[in-house]
Design a protein around this nucleic acid. Structure first.
Lengths: 116, 116
DNA sequence: GCGCCGGTTTACTGCTTCTTCACGACGGCT
DNA sequence: AGCCGTCGTGAAGAAGCAGTAAACCGGCGC
């Protein structure tokens, strides 16, 4: 009965893909269906850029229509919730013109990101 | 023998699954068959989300028919009884679109939970 | 037969979630 | 500098889902 199904881990995040449950540092994070789907889609390709069209296909289940901003809106919602749960960390990184990348990174502290 | 059968503990709740008995803080809580079944089904997956279809299968013993609201009704009944027994605590948490999760949580106190 | 009790179904209400829109910031290009 | 495409963000309306009360139904004891 303790079979846990698919469990994705990204930094302090524990994502139970089969249960619809996310735990951040021992606390349960409540996500909506879309938010959760988006997080799972990103978490399955950690540290890699996932194109917007691919995200839409995975979460919404259809082709991304021109002018559709749903992804932007839900990336924002997800960021807010993740930041509320783990203020120290940033998870979702934007790659303009390409897509989004999920990777834990300390916020506030200057990351070794091309700086230097 | 001191074998007590299956005893589930969730916070102040002590659920004697084989006896059909629930004790909350030394006080016995009287539940009907359905209420008890529901509580046991949730208590066997503590801190995890149990889907509505799974709950129905476990408690009612059949597939959840479309439009059936029995689960909602019994979750409500259960909440009322648990809250009467332990007003300080909330046990059953709703995850819209996913299911329910059993976990003791102080009412009124907002945990670090991005859920809004 | 009648009332009680638990289970089931229905109806109404309210909140959550989803979608779309609007405006502004940012960066690249001319 | 000005224009344009992309993304961030807040808000409004619509749709879906859950909370809740009450009606309805069948078994049981009086």
């Amino acid at each position: 009965m303790t079979s846990e199904g698919e469990v994705l881990r990204v930094g302090e995040l524990e994502i139970r893909a089969d249960d619809g449950l996310v735990v951040a540092g021992g606390h349960t994070v409540t996500l909506s269906v879309r938010e959760f789907g988006l997080l799972v889609a990103l978490a399955r390709r950690p540290s890699r850029i996932v194109r917007r069209a691919d995200l839409f296909q995975l979460v919404w289940g259809g082709p991304l229509r021109e002018g559709d901003r749903s992804i932007d809106v839900y990336v924002h919602k997800l960021r807010v919730k993740l930041e509320t749960a783990l203020p120290e960390w940033r998870f979702i990184h934007t790659h303009v013109g390409f897509g989004y990348r999920l990777e834990p990174e300390l916020s506030g502290t200057a990351p070794a990101d091309g700086a230097g």
